[in-house]
Each structure stands twice: as C-alpha cells, then as structure tokens.
C-alpha cells in the first residue's frame, strides 16, 4: 500500500495532524454521547454542506482493510454518494460496496439503512446543522449554556406548541432525540421513521458537521429516545402503499411522480434493501 495514493496528497487526503485532531475529537464524542465536540474542521475538496463533516470523519478512521458504503437518501447511486465513494476509492484505495452487511464503514446522508446494523460497523452521518436548539435560539453561546445546564425548556415548549396548533408534533424529519437521558441531539435530518434504529444500535454512530465544525457520537448499545409527551407518544410514518418494485410494506418509501395527471408510485428509498428483496423473490 502506497502512502501517496494521489500524487501530492496524503493517504485519505487529510494530513496526519488533522487526522489526529479529528480522531481525538471522536474519542471525546464517544465518551460524552450526544454532546457536540467542536473541532478544527478543514476545507475539503468538496463543498461545505455536501458532506464535509462526514468525509473528514471517514478520512480520519478509514484504512486499507475497510469496506466502504456511501448512501445519499438511502441510495448508493445518487450523484453525491457516487462522488464521495469515488473520492475515497481514489484517495484511500478502499474497497467499496453497496451491500449494507459487507460494509465496515457506511457514510450516509439523511437515512439509516433498513438492514439492521451489526457490531463492528461504523455509521458516519453527514450533518448540516448539528444544533437541535438552533431554530429556537440562534445564538451559539446561548445554546451551549442550555446544553451545559440541561436547560431544555424551549424544546418542550416548541413541541407543545405544535400539539396545540396541529394536534400532533409537526416534525417529520430531524426529529430531536435525547441520548442516555442527558443531551438533546439532532439526529441529522433523517426521517423520524429512522429514529428508532438509533436506539440500542449495535453499530457505532458518528456524526460530522464540517461547516459548523462539530462532531458527536452515539456508542453502541446506547439509549436514544425520541422526545414526546405521554399523551402524544412518538410515532413513525407509514404508507398506505407498498414498494412498486419489491412490494415491501416495512421500508421508507420515496414517492415518484410518473405523469402530470396525478400519477405516482412508491419505491424503497434504500436501494440495496430493495434490490436484495427482488433477488430473494427471484430465488437467485
């Protein structure tokens, strides 16, 4: 294995000192589940907002023995997923896969795969706005104090106002969670459908926000509870339809507009999950 995979650049793009800084931030994040550790995020060759936090985490942990899967919106073939996957294939010469079970590191934007994650896997989330309280309190100094004092009144007020106005909690994605009964955490904008998968997950979950310069983590077997009220318990989305390709009624479905007369169909957002079901049905 050549340390200079791409001429003029270090293995996995980042220089060793930057990797060291990020590695230390990740360890502290693991030790304080749900707490956002500030880190010296670097400019990456991909734009901020396009996964630079996730890419920096992946680049700091990945090695030649890893098998990498990259998904965006649940799918391996969306352009940004393709672009990030080829970035690592080029700079870190890792094997890549689309199969969830084969991957040791999975970088994701907006979804958790449908197949249950296993011990030994690491799920790396790309996070745009890591602060769950940001839209209630724009000031970083204020929100930092709120986390320090575990002062989460504003969040409960916001959820309660939702119920008063809409009769339910009107948050369908980026639904806030509480980690180990301490920190309120933003699950990156995954649909709330995926929230239960974070709880007592066997895999390590790492979250990177490059532009906002924060890293946070959920160790395996950690309690992650979606916020709710006794009389308005948390519930996930469901569809009346089944996937048009594999027939699944249990997965998260993307809606596809098929014509301009209101025609639409629903298909699995997790392309690997869907393809596997089709293969199984065809008995191959």
């Amino acid at each position: 294995m050549n340390a200079e995979a791409m001429p003029g650049y270090n293995y996995a793009y980042l220089d060793e000192q930057t990797k060291g800084m990020i590695r230390r931030a990740i360890l502290k994040a693991v030790a304080i589940p749900g707490y956002q550790v500030p880190f010296g995020s670097r400019e990456m060759p991909l734009p901020y907002g396009w996964g630079t936090g996730g890419i920096q985490i992946t680049a700091s942990i990945i090695g030649p023995d890893d098998v990498l899967k990259v998904i965006d919106q649940g799918a391996d073939d969306t352009t940004n997923a393709v672009s990030i996957r080829s970035f690592f294939a080029r700079t870190a010469q890792v094997a890549t896969t689309t199969t969830t079970e084969e991957a040791t590191v999975i970088q994701t934007r907006h979804r958790i795969p449908e197949a249950p994650l296993k011990s030994g896997q690491i799920l790396v989330y790309q996070v745009p706005i890591p602060e769950p309280l940001r839209f209630m309190e724009p000031s970083e100094s204020e929100t930092r104090t709120m986390h320090a004092l575990e002062e989460y009144g504003v969040m409960h007020v916001k959820l309660y106002e939702d119920i008063a106005e809409h009769g339910r909690i009107a948050t369908s994605y980026n639904y806030p969670v509480k980690v180990e009964d301490r920190y309120i955490m933003c699950p990156s904008p995954i649909p709330k459908f995926d929230n239960p998968k974070m709880d007592n997950c066997q895999a390590l979950q790492l979250f990177g926000a490059g532009r906002e310069k924060r890293i946070y983590a959920i160790p395996p077997h950690t309690r992650v509870k979606s916020l709710d009220f006794e009389d308005h318990p948390f519930e996930i989305q469901s569809w009346d339809e089944a996937c048009s390709i594999c027939g699944s009624r249990k997965s998260f479905l993307d809606e596809i507009i098929t014509d301009d007369h209101g025609g639409r169909m629903f298909v699995c957002s997790d392309s690997d999950f869907c393809a596997r079901r089709v293969r199984e049905q065809e008995g191959t």
Partner: peptide
C-alpha cells in the same frame, strides 16, 4: 506511521 496509527486508532 500512516497505516499503523490508523489501525491502532481503530
């Protein structure tokens, strides 16, 4: 160093 620190870190 590049690879040994990576595998040690993991």
């Amino acid at each position: 160093p590049v690879f040994e620190s990576q595998s040690t870190y993991r």
